[in-house]
Amino acid sequence: MRALVIDDSRAMRRIVSGILIGLGYEVRDAGHGREGLDVLDEGWKPHLLCVDWNMPVMDGLQFVSAVRSNPAWRSVTIMMVTSESEHTQIVRALAAGAHEYVIKPFTADAIRDKLALLGLLPEEVPAGVPVPLRSSEQEVAL
């Protein structure tokens, strides 16, 4: 599985990428929507886009609209990962074509739960096994 993480904060890109890598993803990242489109234009085909909202140059909502208007990228799953958490904003993002929405702050579990909902967990944890509740990144934190 491949994911593209788009966030203007380097720290946040590292955190989200770290969680996804821990789950078995191959990850690339970009600092704003325009850079994200450039990565897609190269022909790299991610299964998942994790997109922040407020970014310079091109914000997350513009990016989502751009991706949704290109039939070549129709199959990609879009998950907003942002501190924008007004009810109306979430509705707007879903209407623009995002599938899921993770509100910052989030834990590694939140990302994993959402990917499970989307059927995008690379290694499905077998039923019946108590799930390790943290990604490897956070194992020390209980």
């Binding site: 979430i90 509705v91 995002a98 599938h99 899921e100 929405y101 939140a110 739960d113 499970a116 909902l117």
Partner: peptide, 20 residues
């Protein structure tokens, strides 16, 4: 809480059934 709704609640269900 914010952290609780982040845990596996599909976003379309959040906006349909919850208010801030």
């Amino acid at each position: 809480s914010q952290l609780e709704v982040n845990r596996g609640l599909p976003a379309p269900m959040l906006v349909r059934h919850f208010t801030r």
